[in-house]
Design a protein around this nucleic acid. Structure first.
Lengths: 160, 160
DNA sequence: ACCATATTGTTAGGGGCCTAATGACCTGGC
DNA sequence: GCCAGGTCATTAGGCCCCTAACAATATGGT
């Protein structure tokens, strides 16, 4: 995520502000940041970042693809993918090769080591997710996810 | 936030995973990221980043303080504050001076330009927040914020 | 007084994200 | 066939965040 830590005590409201809206926005970012950091700590022993793990997972599920397509799936620019691949390739989790069908392009493949990391990582993440959300009923989770979708829709609308 | 863009189609579940929990975690991060980016775009004309704006707001509301205290309020390390201040000082929004009471320390002050930016910024942000959350009733917002707090509590517990 | 211990801000190094610019390469329309 | 206008991946430069290590300075206990 484009990151920032949202402080607990936010700054004073302007008279026309809506406290509830402000709190919703602020806590949305703050919560996500905490979750993200926590996942990062959890993945540390595996020698992958959250971003790297996500990329490896996509490569496992969808097969080899170009950096461009990977960027589309990660919702990230091609420039970011270049850096991410540099890092993953250095760790031996991924391999860049030429695309015979298009001399501009590359094909990114998971190495056996990369494939192994995805397995470990998923086990860890899924247990983490279950633990974190364990205090909610399915209905509560469904309601929560729906709110998030509504916010995403509002965002997509006011400026795609 | 430590950021990553969560892709819409997440990777395949492991058999023992809980789809709802995974979706909740994934959408939490994804939504926050979208919101954060959207705020960043909105603040661009003001020549401040979201992090910078937050820092300026804190300085306005709590008065001059040390980089350490600012870091505590922003929930960020001192090292991060150093960089943030470099950036804000370059823009003329903030001023570093020596702390007469402690020769190790500094005191960070808002400049008049910095103070002006805070005003504009808040007007923009509060309107944005109202617009974004305009589709929800107060009760819905309260429920949503409560969920977020519950997740934060769960996070704080399992590893402060 | 004196010294171990803690704190302050900075630097160095590692990621992740973005925009803008670049050269190599496709493609479609003429 | 040719060339304008896309697209591919990369680099350069910016911002934000983190950990680790540093010198300078405080502080508290003996």
């Amino acid at each position: 995520m484009a990151k920032i830590k949202m402080p607990g005590d936010f700054y004073e409201q302007t008279p026309d502000g809506n406290i509830l809206a402000t709190e919703a926005v602020m806590n949305t970012i703050r919560t996500a940041d905490m979750v993200f950091d926590s996942i990062g700590r959890m993945l540390r022993p595996l020698n992958v970042s959250a971003a790297g793990g996500l990329a490896l997972g996509i490569l496992r599920d969808f097969g080899s693809m170009s950096p461009s397509e990977l960027g589309d799936r990660l919702i990230v620019t091609r420039a970011t993918v270049t850096g991410l691949l540099d890092s993953l390739e250095r760790r031996g989790y991924v391999h860049r090769s030429a695309n015979p069908a298009d001399r501009r392009g590359l094909i990114i493949e998971l190495t056996p080591a990369g494939r192994a990391v995805v397995q470990e990582l998923r086990t860890i993440i899924h247990r983490y997710e279950k633990d974190l959300m364990g205090g909610f009923t399915d209905d509560e989770l469904r309601g929560y996810v729906e709110r998030l979708h509504q916010i995403q829709d509002a965002l997509a609308q006011e400026q795609g």
